[in-house]
């Protein structure tokens, strides 16, 4: 679990590999020559001021936004820049959004059911019926997200924090191999925030996780390697205390 501090050790078989990625919107460089390597099973926190390009980075990894230049490789072979959102999801890249988005006119249970890993073609979906293993998996997820009492409520009726949890549950239901989690702690109580941190820590190892977060307490609780993004590029990388001692980082966060 613990990552080496300091410079990148050569990673033999990275799960995700971004190299020299740039993307501009009307001349504004939202991502500027960004490089990033995520190992199998790694937990990584990405921090950075607002507008640093964190969400845009996730957009690029998931195929929502195409980079202007640069390489994005999945398992060293698959070029993610050619795929769309559905295709990256099918590869096993799951995403939780900054603004929680759940399907509001479906029940909590349906939200989870629809997220379960399964054949996504219309034909298969048309004929699929619930099965016993499916039900027990949903029970598990409901217990994990502590939404058991809300099983048959419409997701639209949940509180903000509950929606965050539901979305985390949906993310887990997909059984992704890489989780992209954008600001999960927003709208949660302190206790819930810590629970989320624990949950993500327990997931890592089996799956890789990239977490974007502003909350320093949360990042500290994750206790993982941290990447600092600034103006679309990596400003620093390493352990949180090491990174937060760097003058550059201090200036970006506190200066001006």
């Amino acid at each position: 679990m613990t990552q080496p501090i300091g410079g990148l050790p050569p990673v033999a078989q990275p799960q995700l590999y971004l190299d020299g990625v740039s993307r501009s919107f009307d001349g504004f460089k939202a991502i500027n020559n960004l490089s990033l390597v995520i190992e199998h099973g790694e937990l990584r926190a990405v921090i950075g001021p607002n507008g640093a390009g964190k969400t845009t980075m996730m957009d690029i990894i998931t195929g929502k936004t195409r980079p202007d230049t640069g390489q994005v490789l999945w398992e060293q072979t698959v070029d993610l820049t050619r795929l769309d959102e559905a295709a990256t999801a099918r590869l096993g890249i799951g995403r939780k959004f900054q603004k929680p988005t759940v399907f509001e006119s479906h029940t909590v249970q349906d939200n989870l059911t629809l997220a379960l890993k399964a054949d996504r073609s219309p034909w298969a979906t048309l004929f699929r019926r619930g099965s016993a293993p499916e039900r027990s998996r949903i029970d598990e997820l409901l217990a994990l997200t502590r939404l058991g009492d809300h099983r048959f409520r419409l997701a639209g009726a949940l509180s903000h924090g509950q929606k965050q949890w539901l979305e985390i549950g949906m993310l887990l239901a997909q059984e992704p191999r890489l989780l992209l989690v954008d600001e999960p702690a927003a709208g949660m109580t302190d206790a819930e925030t810590m629970l989320t941190a624990d949950l993500l820590k327990s997931i890592a190892g089996e799956r890789s996780v990239i977490v974007v977060e502003h909350d320093m307490e949360f990042v500290r609780a994750l206790g993982c390697k941290v990447t600092v993004l600034h103006q679309g590029a990596v400003l620093a990388e390493g352990r949180l205390d090491a990174v937060s001692a760097m003058p550059d980082v201090i200036e970006v966060y506190l200066g001006r």
Partner: peptide
């Protein structure tokens, strides 16, 4: 059917549905 539920997902949050791996256009 479950397909019908996916349709409602598309109606309410099309982009989100894609990120679950559903090919909305199909």
């Amino acid at each position: 059917s479950r397909l019908g539920k996916v349709l409602v997902c598309v109606r309410d949050a099309e982009s989100r549905t894609r990120f679950l791996g559903y090919r909305v256009e199909h």
